[in-house]
Amino acid sequence: MQRDVIAPLVIAALVALAPFAGQTDYFIHILVQILLWGFIYTAWSLMGRFGLVSLGHGAFMGIGAYVTVLLWNFFELTPWIGMPIAVAAAVALAAIVGWPCVRLRIVGHYFALVTLALTAVVALSIVGLRDITGGSLGLTPNREAAGTSIYAFQFASKTVFLYVALVLWLIGLFVWRAVDRGMGRYALQAISSDEDASASVGINVGVEKIRIILLSAGLTALGGAVFGQYQMYINPETVSGIGVSLQIVFAVVAGGMFVQLGPTVGAAFTLILAETLRILIGNEYHAADTTIYGLMLVLFIIFMPKGILGAVFAGLERAKAKAA
């Protein structure tokens, strides 16, 4: 067995045992957050690591969350069907915007800005459709009387969500592994350094790129849908919009986008940092955490562009090379 199978399974086993060790709801809540965001960040890195830096994932996450909740509230459609529909909607949007980007070679800065505009369109549309979506005030899924209902994908216990999030997170890591070990990875790496040269050696540039974009968008929407069900409250600021898009990119940069567990480390790092600072400094100085976080991001990109985990692995490689 390889490292990219063992490490996730060991971590998953430890997390799965957490509820039995008599942990508080707060601790479980932090774990769920890390796993859900870790999943979304992993989904982003699937394409981000190949130079496709998207600032549009807030749009996909928002669609995942909103479509699921809206279908439930208005048509009482169970999230078990609603979530796949939401994912399909996000994938369709990704195709509509992604395909022209791929064909017309909108890359680098331009790709980032087109996807940024996409986020703005989706977030502002959610606000604009306030009669349906509740606008900036947000939206709460209609609660089942019992509090817990598998049909409604609502669970009163955080522990249940811990396992849901855990499964989702593992799926994310194994999708990453499949991409990492597939032929597509070599193709995409070649494409990210030179599209013309890649095409000349027989790589179907368009197909390879759009595949990874659709995969990444779909998984992000799924993450957004589950996140909405967990929080039982969504608003355009927390699940969509430019803030979310930037949050995704920066957490991934902090953790390291080129290694399998990097995005998860980014999620854990940013959430634990925020919580620690919140407890240390207290609530009256809000934004202290993001101030330090922003400063660290700048330092990271200047001094540690591979992220925390990337830097750790690079350090280990160097140590090994020295020893040998």
């Binding site: 680098g108 800065h109 980032a112 920066f250 940069v253 934004a287 993001t290 922003g294 991001l297 990109i301």
Partner: peptide, 24 residues
Amino acid sequence: QSEPINQLLVTGGVLFFLQSFATL
């Protein structure tokens, strides 16, 4: 001298910093 996308992201970090700093 680093990749263009890093230059984009580093100023994004500054965005976070300035916005939160102003809030603070």
